[in-house]
C-alpha cells in the first residue's frame, strides 16, 4: 500500500461515488416496481420526484468520475518516483498492471454515465417518460461496474510496493530483477498517421452525412456510433504513437499523460477534452436511435440528435486540429 494523500483522496472519492450509486439503485428498484404514469397517486408523485434526485446524483457521479480519472493519472504520475525504472505515470501503472484496468474502467464508466444522462435527457422531454424502466434498469446494471472499478482501484493501490530501503538491507538487489518498462509499446509513426487521418476522415464524413440528411436510415447512425468507438481507440493509439512525440519533440517519449503537464502548456486538456466530447456526443446520438420507435419522443430525439451530431463534428475537427498542429508547425521531424 502506498500511503499517499492522492491515493487516500481517490479511495475516499470512489467510496462516496459507490454510496451515491447504491442509493440511486435503491430508488431505481422502487421506480421499476411501482412506476405507473397513468396514476396520479401520491406514491407516483413521490417516485416522479425521486427521478430528479437520481438524475442529480448521476450528474455528480459523472462529474466525480471524470475528476477521479484525472486525479488517478496525476497520482500515478506523482508516485512514479517510488518505483525503480518508472519515468512517469506509465511506470506507476506498470508497477501493478491492474492500474491499467482501473484507468480503462474509469473511462468506460464515464462514457456509460454520459450515455445514461443522454437517455435520461430525451426521456424527460416526453410527457409519458417512456424510457423510465429502461433507464433505471441501465442504472442498476451500471452499479456493479462502478463497484468493480472501486475495488480494482483499491486493489491497485494496496498492491503497490514502493522500492525503498528497509532497515535490514538496501533494496537494490531484491529489485534489480524487476525492470519495469517505462514507455508504452508504440506503433510506427508513418503507418499510424495514415490510419489516424483515414479513420478521422471516415468519422467526419459519417457525421456530416447524418447532419445533412437527418432522416438517414438508423443503420447509418449505428455505424457512425460504432465508428466513433473505433476512432476513439485509434486516436488514443495515435496520441501515444506520434502526437505525443511531436509535442514533446523527442522521438522516444510517448507518454500519453505528460501532455497534461504544465511544461506542455496543458495541451492535453483541450486535446482529450475535444476527443472525449466529440466521441461522446456522436455515441449519444447513436444510443438514442432505437428509441425513435416511440412516438412520443421521436421528434425530440430527432432534434437532440441533430444538435449532438453538430457538436460532435465540431469537437472532432478541433481535436484533429490540435493533434495535427505540432506536426505541421513544429520543427521536429519524427522521420524523413
Amino acid at each position: 500500500m502506498i500511503f499517499h494523500t492522492g491515493v487516500l483522496a481517490l479511495v475516499a472519492g470512489s467510496l462516496i461515488v459507490l454510496i451515491m450509486t447504491l442509493f440511486s439503485v435503491a430508488i431505481a428498484l422502487r421506480i421499476i416496481i411501482g412506476w405507473d404514469i397513468t396514476k396520479s397517486t401520491a406514491k407516483q408523485l413521490i417516485l416522479e420526484r425521486q427521478t430528479y434526485l437520481v438524475a442529480t446524483i448521476m450528474k455528480y457521479v459523472m462529474g466525480f468520475q471524470i475528476l477521479s480519472l484525472f486525479l488517478f493519472v496525476y497520482t500515478a504520475d506523482d508516485i512514479h518516483k517510488l518505483f525503480v525504472g518508472a519515468m512517469c505515470a506509465t511506470g506507476s501503472l506498470n508497477a501493478n498492471p491492474i492500474g491499467w484496468s482501473v484507468l480503462f474502467a474509469k473511462i468506460v464508466i464515464f462514457f456509460l454515465c454520459t450515455m445514461w444522462l443522454a437517455i435520461n435527457r430525451v426521456d424527460e422531454l416526453a410527457e409519458d417518460y417512456p424510457l423510465v424502466r429502461f433507464k433505471y434498469k441501465y442504472l442498476i446494471a451500471l452499479a456493479p461496474v462502478i463497484a468493480l472499478e472501486a475495488y480494482w482501484q483499491l486493489d491497485y493501490f494496496l498492491g503497490l510496493r514502493a522500492n525503498v530501503i528497509t532497515s535490514c538491507c538496501s533494496s537494490l538487489f531484491s529489485d534489480e530483477g524487476i525492470t519495469v518498462a517505462s514507455s508504452l509499446a508504440s506503433l510506427p509513426v508513418g503507418p499510424s498517421m495514415y490510419v489516424f487521418y483515414g479513420a478521422g476522415a471516415v468519422e467526419i464524413v459519417l457525421l456530416f452525412l447524418l447532419m445533412k440528411r437527418p432522416g438517414s436510415s438508423p443503420s447509418l447512425r449505428y455505424i457512425s456510433g460504432a465508428w466513433s468507438l473505433i476512432f476513439f481507440i485509434v486516436s488514443v493509439a495515435s496520441i501515444i504513437s506520434f502526437v505525443s512525440i511531436y509535442y514533446y519533440e523527442t522521438p522516444v517519449h510517448h507518454c500519453p499523460f505528460d501532455l497534461l503537464q504544465k511544461q506542455y502548456m496543458f495541451i492535453g486538456y483541450p486535446l482529450y477534452g475535444s476527443l472525449f466530447g466529440g466521441i461522446l456526443f456522436s455515441m449519444a446520438a447513436a444510443v438514442t436511435e432505437p428509441f425513435k420507435k416511440i412516438d412520443s419522443i421521436r421528434t425530440e430525439i430527432h432534434n437532440a440528435q441533430r444538435r449532438w451530431t453538430k457538436i460532435s463534428i465540431l469537437l472532432i475537427i478541433v481535436f484533429i486540429i490540435i493533434a495535427t498542429w505540432p506536426i505541421v508547425f513544429s520543427n521536429f521531424r519524427a522521420y524523413d
Partner: peptide, 8 residues
C-alpha cells in the same frame, strides 16, 4: 393536463 408529470 390531469396526468401530466410535474415537469410538464
Amino acid at each position: 393536463v390531469a396526468k401530466l408529470p410535474e415537469r410538464f
